[in-house]
């Protein structure tokens, strides 16, 4: 498994941008989710005591990734959960061309006393948003509103 992400300083002065990469769409989704998770909290301070399953379908891989990352932001506010890690299985329906996600987010209720909380992400944005394939690698560029 070789998924990675790095934050891009030059892209978003007041906010936060990152580039995520993986050898497959599934790895890309895990990498990008981890970048959002680590923007919100130090994942090493989050106990893995709650699990959320995410099932999503979308016409394009870019739409599917956008929805997946937006779910992490939504759950932070609506259910007061932050996460330690994410797993994702992303496939494309060959008949319809639609993309599907079976994702799992593992984390815990927000607790400022035990967790190192970072930024309260407002939204995943479409600014400079991009998902592309570079040879065997899948790459996404995402800007988060902080």
């Amino acid at each position: 498994m070789t998924f990675t992400f790095r934050f891009l300083e030059e892209v978003a002065l007041a906010d936060l941008a990152f580039e995520a990469c993986g050898d497959s769409p599934s790895e890309l989704f895990q990498a990008a989710a981890q970048a959002v998770i680590e923007t919100i909290v130090n994942p090493m301070t989050v106990q893995p005591c709650r699990e959320k399953s995410i099932e999503r379908r979308a016409p394009t891989i870019a739409d599917l990734l956008f929805d997946w990352l937006s779910d992490i932001v939504y759950l932070k506010d609506a259910e007061s959960i932050v996460f330690r890690e994410a797993t994702a299985v992303v496939t494309q329906d060959q008949n319809q061309g639609e993309w599907q996600l079976h994702g799992t987010l593992t984390g815990a209720p927000i607790d400022p006393n035990s967790q190192e909380l970072h930024a309260d992400v407002k939204a995943v944005t479409k600014h400079l948003y991009e998902v592309r394939q570079e040879g065997p690698r899948w790459v996404a560029r995402v800007v988060l509103d902080i």
Partner: peptide
Amino acid sequence: IERGIHQLGTLGSGN
């Protein structure tokens, strides 16, 4: 509604 219903009277973060 689900994101905001519990947040009345909170500052948030960032700037």
